[in-house]
Design a protein around this nucleic acid. Structure first.
Lengths: 201, 201
DNA sequence: GTCTATATTCTGATAGAC
DNA sequence: GTCTATCAGAATATAGAC
């Protein structure tokens, strides 16, 4: 870790790492200060409180995490399958760099149902997206009752995200090591869009 | 809630509910005592500590959650598709009664990587199951490199569990209410086994 | 077994010197 | 801006009466 960072950024980086790994409630401000290599008082000097520091980290995480979605959802040049492919690839890459980000976001979102949802809901409305229109066209009206487009979105997100969330469980059940897990995630970049397209046939 | 329970069970029920909803770190022993309608001292009298109480709840949750898997995995009378169908139906029913159980288990498992995994890994080894054999037969050796059976298990678990974990997000993105969500979960009991079988073609 | 009161430790936040 | 020292409150756990 390079040391030519502002104190504020050192604190934020440490906070992000620990919040992600342990969650809000289990994180102690002293741990953050230690990891950042600064004193506890400085944390409050820069961010006023643990709560405010957390909110900042969380907002940024949400923004980063949903950044791609908006663009991909509304890409005008890409086909349906290309959109699935782009989402799978970019998210698998991103989560690999921050493996705890999905479970972090989802569990903190559960703990605070109303605090951050507005932030997201503005960003991504399925019904207003080009992806949604393409889905409708592909599925066809006669099958719309049976297979709601939201099913497909659940499946897409679940297929991408779940292996990372369930990793400790899956590694035991399947007896896979880290290298093998990485290989499988790489495979899934191509498999997931294929699977989703099969569901639409 | 009937009141003819032992004090120990009253505490355990209250603890289970609050641990599930808020997670270990955010749960206060006083909240459990209040919810159980007893005094704080009694909690320590029966369970010695918050930690020990949690371990007991967690162990039982894991056992319940993985109870079905073992049986379904090794059913000798059921086909592959029937196994997928049984797993989807029973888990969707079970999670509906305790909606927080997946995120609870997965987030606490992340926080304590080594404490409980042994408990699970004993219960469920994919490679030793009849389901695994059936999968191998269906997939065929020539496709085994491309599509590891573990992919299929990840997909099955993800398709079942993710909608509940991602519910706050999905409800916003898709603008669905509770009734609609329930309907979709009901649909998925039939859709998921169908989707998984398609992946194997 | 159950309670009230209390001990003890932990934790977020601040005061004040430099 | 950064630190040391400390406060105030919260939270787990126990002592001891009933």
């Amino acid at each position: 870790m390079s040391t030519d960072l502002t104190t504020e950024d050192k604190i934020k980086n440490a906070a992000r790492e620990i919040f992600m790994k342990k969650g809000y409630a289990a994180t102690k401000t002293r741990d953050i200060a230690d990891a950042a290599g600064i004193n506890l008082a400085l944390l409050n000097y820069y961010f006023r409180s643990k709560e405010k520091l957390f909110q900042q980290i969380m907002m940024e995480s949400l923004t980063v995490f949903f950044q791609h979605i908006q663009n991909v959802f509304n890409g005008e040049q890409t086909t349906l399958e290309e959109k699935f492919s782009l989402l799978a690839s970019s998210y698998i890459n991103q989560i690999r760099e921050q493996p705890d980000i999905p479970i972090f976001i989802l569990s903190e979102l559960r703990a605070r149902p109303d605090e951050f949802v507005s932030q997201m809901s503005v960003q991504t409305r399925l019904k207003d997206s080009i992806l949604f229109d393409q889905l409708l066209e592909k599925i066809g009206k006669e099958r719309m009752m049976e297979i709601n487009p939201l099913h497909i979105m659940m499946n897409l997100m679940g297929l991408i995200v779940f292996p990372f969330i369930g990793r400790p469980m899956l590694e035991r059940m399947g007896e896979v090591d880290d290298a093998h897990f990485d290989l499988m995630m790489e495979q899934r970049k191509e498999l997931i869009p294929k699977w989703i397209m099969q569901m639409l046939e």
